[in-house]
């Protein structure tokens, strides 16, 4: 900076502006993050040690019960079901990543109208989850639904996907995969734009093609896109709520609940007045998420460190 003058004549703010300016820019974000995310996390821990109906003041109406809520969770079968459903969501939701990659590779070509095809494939991500849920619940309807009409052509069925406790969760996950695959696809499409054509050329000269080309040349270059796809899919799987609420409302007999839905039911729904218990579920969900978030943060930090070297 050539315009810099003698530091002695500058004010305090001028001298420290390189530190103060970023701090000022960060302040609103940090403030809101603290108020709406960090502090509530600790409040949840605190409330989870109380039996409180959420009405009136916690210090007056609440009763301190220590870890009783967590002890009860250990024996609560509905909690166990919800936890397992979360695991199913996590595992099956990841199918969106290879699915998205496949569609992206397929659409990554220059033919007439490709933009239209791309937007059609992206469409399910744009529409609201509520609409997706409704569309799929009509699709699954036991008598009028398209699915059973289709199965009927082959003499199979009818199945009541959302009414069968063993199938319902899978039915909802399938509905969730529809928009999530579109999301992963768009991530990969942008990633494919950044793939270095020279490397592909070089690989081709060396005789790589097909699967080997994909695995050894394309995919390594898509690593940033894959990372983001993992992050959004895992977080998406853990916070699944709207589809469940729309499609089955947690039923039949609670077989499609996940932790976030169960927490809502226990603490905030029509019949839910157990803030402490709901908070305990939230804490467990938070700890599960923390494993993934910790891993993501660590790997981002590692990448940045490597990049700086």
């Amino acid at each position: 900076m050539t315009i810099a003058t003698d530091p002695e004549t500058q004010g305090w703010f001028q001298r420290n502006r390189m530190i103060i300016t970023p701090l000022m820019f960060l302040l609103p974000g940090v403030l809101f993050f603290a108020i709406y995310v960090i502090i509530p996390i600790f409040q949840s821990f605190y409330i989870s040690t109380y039996e409180w109906n959420g009405l009136g003041d916690l210090s007056e109406q609440g009763e301190f019960v220590g870890l009783d809520n967590y002890r009860e969770l250990m024996t609560d079968r509905a909690f166990e079901v919800s936890l397992w459903n979360n695991v199913k969501w996590l595992a099956l939701y990841l199918l969106a990543i290879p699915g998205g990659l496949f569609i992206a590779l397929f659409l990554n070509q220059t033919i007439v109208g490709i933009r239209l095809y791309k937007s059609l494939f992206f469409f399910p991500f744009v529409i609201s989850q509520v609409v997706v849920g409704l569309v799929f619940s009509w699709f699954y309807l036991p008598r009028e639904g398209l699915l059973n009409g289709f199965l009927g052509l082959f003499g199979a069925g009818p199945v009541n996907v959302l009414g069968d406790p063993t199938l319902a969760t899978y039915g909802i996950i399938a509905a969730g995969l529809w928009p999530q695959t579109a999301y992963c696809m768009i991530l990969y499409l942008t990633g494919l734009n950044a793939v270095d054509p020279e490397q592909i050329e070089a690989a081709r000269l060396d005789g790589a093609r097909g699967r080997r080309m994909l695995w050894h040349v394309i995919l390594p270059q898509l690593r940033p896109a894959t990372f983001i796809a993992f992050v959004v899919t895992i977080i998406g799987a853990l916070r699944s709520f709207d589809l469940i609420s729309i499609m089955t409302n947690g039923g039949p007999f609670g077989s499609t609940r996940v932790l976030s839905f169960y927490m809502f039911e226990k603490a905030l729904s029509e019949y839910g007045f157990r803030m402490g218990y709901g908070s305990a579920i939230a804490v467990i969900l938070f700890l599960i998420m923390l494993v993934f978030i910790g891993y993501f943060l660590w790997s981002m930090w590692r990448d940045e460190r490597d990049a700086r070297r």
């Binding site: 007999f253 609670g254 019949y271």
Partner: peptide, 22 residues
């Protein structure tokens, strides 16, 4: 049912009744 029974009992109870019907 859901007005005579306490809220949480009603919710767990009705879920059981639904399961029984199926």
């Amino acid at each position: 049912f859901d007005r005579d029974f306490p809220a949480e009992m009603a919710s767990i109870g009705m879920e059981g009744l639904q399961e029984f019907m199926v």
